[in-house]
Design a protein around this nucleic acid. Sequence first.
DNA 1: GTGAAGGGCCAC
DNA 2: AAACGTGGCCCTTCAC
Length: 584
Amino acid sequence: MSDAESLKKACADLADAELLGFDVETTDLDPYRGDLRLIQLSDGQKTKVIDLKAFRGKGDLKTLPELAPLREFLASPRQRKVAHNAKFDCKWVRHHLGIEVGNIYDTYLASILIAAGEGERRHGLADVVQVFLQRTLDKTEQVSDWSANELTQSQVEYAARDAAIMPEVYEKLNERIEQDALGDVLALENDCVVPVAEMELNGFYLDQTRWREQLDKVVKEQTRSGLELQELLAAGVAQASLFGRAEINLDSQAQVSEALLNLGVPIPNTTRAWELQPLAEKFPVVEKLLEYRGFAKASQSFGENILEFVEPSTGRIHADFRAIGAPTGRFSCSRPNLQQIPHEAEYRRCFRAPEGRQLVIADYSQIELRILADFSEDANFIAAFESGQDFHAATAAQVFRIKTEDVSEDQRSFAKRLNFGVVYGIGASRFAMMTGLSQSEAENTLRKYFATYPRLDEWLRTAAATAKETRMTRTRSGRLAKFRFDENDRASVAAAQRYAKNMPIQGTSADILKRSLRVLHDDIRFSSARLVNIVHDEVIVECDAADAEATHSKLESAMTRAGNEYVTRVPVKVDIRTADAWAK
DNA sequence: GTGAAGGGCCAC
DNA sequence: AAACGTGGCCCTTCAC
């Protein structure tokens, strides 16, 4: 339909439904580039396909009175809107109709939660319909031309079908969600859809001039370093090649390895930085290679490519966040990945607040260790946090049985690396390699560590043992991870056990971050504050300079409250600052 | 030309 | 022989 009267009637027709399939068709994948063409709503019996093309000519869709019934309908929390990858639909409705969709149920996220990290299962709507309804869904019209003046019968039918099937998909999926006790974690995920959709629409402002200045510097350095490296490597190639000096592709590890061999450098199995590092002192060419690699990485991964993601109409970067990017529940981010911007100030200072705005940057302090303390209920581990002192120094004091003020820099460093290693299920050999201790010294230190924290030791052992039996584990929200391993393959058992130790910790951290996004969203509504980036345990909000103080306390409070919902035996600490830019 | 695999490295 | 968890993206290499 495409007129005001029938739109009003359509909304009234569906008003009594508790559950509605919800879908949109658009002329592009990017809401900043294309138009929202169709909105489809269905209770499973009655299906309404609303063509916005006719309304577009009449004014701004955000305020057009004729669309008011639709906007109210979508915003209302009364009907549950069931959509597949609802983030997509929410972004379009938010951007083009100015509406925050109320009461979302995302079957895409539900399907991923049910799969619990198992197998290579796909989660497109057609895949989910196949698995849960044993029916084949034709998606060929998905990529058809949705900008045509007149849509074909086939297009309209396709659009209607996608919405009409959703209530049925919901029934089947939700049955499994209940069976697998995934209701709470799905609610957590559904609550995040709108905050994440808005974060992507908000984008993160990048100072392109600063970025380019930094890039120019790096490229110059890379060129200089590359020439010098070429010089040093040429000596090796000259002997090997009758034609004398040949250009080496410095980005080819095969060519570089060969040249290094010719120079008599005893290269290890790999040419990774941490393997080459010990050789750098003896061989200037290795040192030069490492220097070159640093500049190459910087210019290739954090150069022009990032600038290409700046949306011209906003001057900002609108990255793509996947809510369940990892089976642990962590987000992943791409195009570009704003979660891997180098920590150095030269890069992060380019991500700044525009004129008149400020950034409020908050992160959970040592959240994974606090979660581990909370899980294990180890009195000493908890005490180390409750002391309020430097945590790694406090553990060093406990492990080495000395006063905190007597802890040496070395001892603190050992404690720090142990604390982090433990979260990943580290073994003595890896710890030895990491610290330069001998195997037996490493074993000794680990033994002392676990003697200090007996309940922690116990928790980790139980996690590993249970994993072997049940082949699954959960986070605090009930997020489930299943894993496969071959009982006869010791390496695969060990890998599964490390995962079983780490997943509940990493995953609970993800739960907490997600919860904080929802709490924050509700707290900053109707203010100038906008969520612009998240990095696993960090949240970045941009706001008017005048609102900085209020935003600061709202963010701190939201994150603390979210943390306290999942971590109760250990204090949750949020480090927070207001700044012009992301850099410290 | 396109795509997958592998090495390498950035983040937490 | 041995590897400490989760990602994305760059480049080269190699197959089609």
